[in-house]
Amino acid sequence: MANPQDSLSREHGGIPWKHVIGYILSIVLTALALWVTFETGFSTRTILIIIFIFAFLQAALQLLMFMHMTESSEKNNTLTGKTQTGNILFAAFIAIVIVAGSVWVMGAGHAKHDHHKMEMDHDMKMDGDMKMDHGDHK
């Protein structure tokens, strides 16, 4: 756990390396995400997995390098740093459940309101295949 007193004396007067490194890494991650998206020709699924990993890494950089998330306000007591970190991790968990859960529920073949999918279901019924469409729609 970073202690404010330590980080202060370490950065006293000097160049704030933590921030400089965080900034450079953020730019690198953004550039890499662009490269993966437009230049590699990976499959859609692979591209999405990679760029979301990059996004989470960059968010972690902001929280750790810029926002001092793990830093505690009291000397010799790491409780506030742990509380802040735990709170953000829990919020991230909630966010992932909401987003991934919504996309899964609404996208896994249950939502049949658009014309495109109704046609597909119709074709499947014509083939006598009553199975739900489990493939992901790209």
Partner: peptide, 9 residues
Amino acid sequence: IALFSTLFA
């Protein structure tokens, strides 16, 4: 974070 997650969803 929870607020924005609903908008992303």
